[in-house]
Amino acid sequence: MSFSFPTNATPNNVRSVALAILHQNGRFLMQLRDNIPTIIYPDRWGFFGGHLEPGETPEMGVKREVIEEINFTIENPIFFCRYDDDIALRYIFHAPLTVSIDELNLQEGADLGLVSPDDVKRGQCYSEKLGDVRPLGKIHQEILLNFINRS
């Protein structure tokens, strides 16, 4: 199913982004963002996805971004909801992760991992690659808690 959501920036130049909740066996694939102070949510766990390109629908954008970031093709992303704030208009999709995380090719971020519902509730997750616990991005935690509660 395709959606034709408006992708123009709002008058405040808020960007439109499409993000993926990829789930497998009750856990959620997340990206540990790079620890670069100039990016949004540095050194935090967040969703795969990103900014929409001109003329791109959110569904097209989430598919493109996930391929670019981990070389995984989402066949049929299901629209979950939209979260708006002063930072972004977030189009959230969900889909099953149908391969082992060992088959993914991380192209962006410091690490990736499957996050449990308990990790989401605690707001933090262990990074195997860094050998340390890192927090979830606050908005990502909120979205996942809503997703868990609606499932």
Rank of each mutant, 00 (worst) to 15 (best):
F5Y: 09
G46E: 10
L29P: 00
E56M: 14
A20N: 03
D118P: 01
R64S: 09
M1V: 09
I74Y: 06
T38K: 13
N12L: 13
A20Q: 04
W45F: 11
V17N: 01
F48R: 02
Y91N: 10
N35P: 03
L145F: 09
A110S: 15
E103A: 11
M1R: 12
C81W: 04
D118R: 08
I92Q: 00
E75G: 06
S4K: 14
V115P: 00
G55Q: 07
G49H: 04
V99L: 12
F48L: 12
E108R: 09
E65Q: 12
F80D: 01
I78K: 08
P96T: 03
I74K: 02
L97W: 03
N13E: 13
E53D: 11
K121Y: 04
D111G: 12
N146C: 04
Y41A: 15
Q107D: 07
S116G: 14
Y83R: 10
N76S: 14
R27P: 00
L144I: 05
N8K: 06
G113Y: 03
F47D: 00
F28W: 11
I143M: 08
L144A: 01
L144P: 02
D43K: 13
C125F: 06
H94D: 02
D132E: 14
L106T: 05
A20F: 03
D84L: 10
H94E: 02
R27V: 02
Y126G: 05
N8Q: 15
P11I: 07
I21K: 04
E59W: 03
N105G: 05
N13Q: 13
L130S: 13
R134P: 04
R150G: 02
H51I: 09
N105F: 05
Q31W: 02
V120D: 01
T73P: 01
H140V: 05
N149Q: 10
I139D: 15
G131W: 05
F48D: 01
R134F: 13
C125M: 10
I92W: 00
V99T: 15
P96C: 06
T38I: 06
S2C: 09
P96A: 05
G113S: 12
G26Q: 15
I21S: 00
S16Y: 04
D85E: 08
L19A: 02
E75S: 10
A18Y: 01
E53N: 15
N146L: 02
R150W: 03
G26V: 11
P6F: 14
P135Y: 12
F5G: 11
N71L: 14
H140R: 07
G137D: 09
N146W: 00
E65Y: 10
N13R: 11
I87K: 11
I21P: 01
Q141M: 08
T98R: 09
P96G: 07
L19C: 00
I92P: 00
L112C: 08
G55S: 14
P77D: 10
I143W: 00
P11N: 14
G61N: 05
G123K: 10
I40T: 12
M60G: 07
M1I: 14
E56G: 08
F147C: 01
D84E: 14
T73M: 12
H94S: 03
H94A: 00
Y41D: 15
T38N: 06
E69A: 09
D34R: 07
R15T: 10
S116V: 06
K138L: 11
S127P: 05
R64H: 09
G113T: 03
I92R: 00
P58E: 10
G131F: 12
T57H: 09
W45Y: 13
T73A: 13
E53W: 11
A110Q: 09
L145G: 06
R134I: 10
